[in-house]
Design a protein around this nucleic acid. Sequence first.
DNA 1: CACAAATATTCCTTGACAAGAATATTCCCT
DNA 2: AGGGAATATTCTTGTCAAGGAATATTTGTG
Lengths: 103, 103
Amino acid sequence: MSALAEPNRLQIVELLRDEPYTVGEIADQLRLRQPQVSKHLRVLSEAGLVEVQPIANKRIYKLRHQPFSQLDDWLESFLNVWDERFDRLDEYLEDLKKKDRGE
Amino acid sequence: MSALAEPNRLQIVELLRDEPYTVGEIADQLRLRQPQVSKHLRVLSEAGLVEVQPIANKRIYKLRHQPFSQLDDWLESFLNVWDERFDRLDEYLEDLKKKDRGE
DNA sequence: CACAAATATTCCTTGACAAGAATATTCCCT
DNA sequence: AGGGAATATTCTTGTCAAGGAATATTTGTG
């Protein structure tokens, strides 16, 4: 997750969401210098967020889906808790109504 | 998102997922020193991930749900792309079958 | 009001990390 | 093999953030 903390890296990831790009294309679109892009891609790669496909002397980078669905699972574990709490609040309100009717 | 990049802060957030805690309780459970916990909670608070409820001289910290559902939305925008691509792959395979049958 | 518990803040030091510049590597082409 | 394009790596420098220790602040209690 710390790989996504760096702003430029986040931009790269969001750029790659739509389609794969080469290092040069990424550098152009984000107005970054090539060495920094390579370095950021290295970090993203080691974090498993990205994979490379070498074609000639170009390297095409694309996102890997696993870490994202993994992060999604992690997030669900948070959202679920709130859902459950909401359910319990629901029950609580139902109880109130019943008492109100004298049950 | 950089607020979650720090390991101890991530631990704090995961601890708070289950229920609210005071600063001292967090420090005890995670084996951290109180000042660091206070500092981390400050960062989490300024990032909007957490909110405080002062009771006496204690301060009870709990998660806020908005940033998490927001992060979830962001993630969905990634997962959606893969779903769409999977759909297109599906169509592609259907086309192959039709051609195979000579249509 | 003095004291104690809980928490926040400050100052300092150290380590990590990102950018810049220069250079190395890899691949294709002729 | 030599040259050029695309990308990676190294080295250096400056900045920032986390931890440690000490101290300040707030709140309740006798």
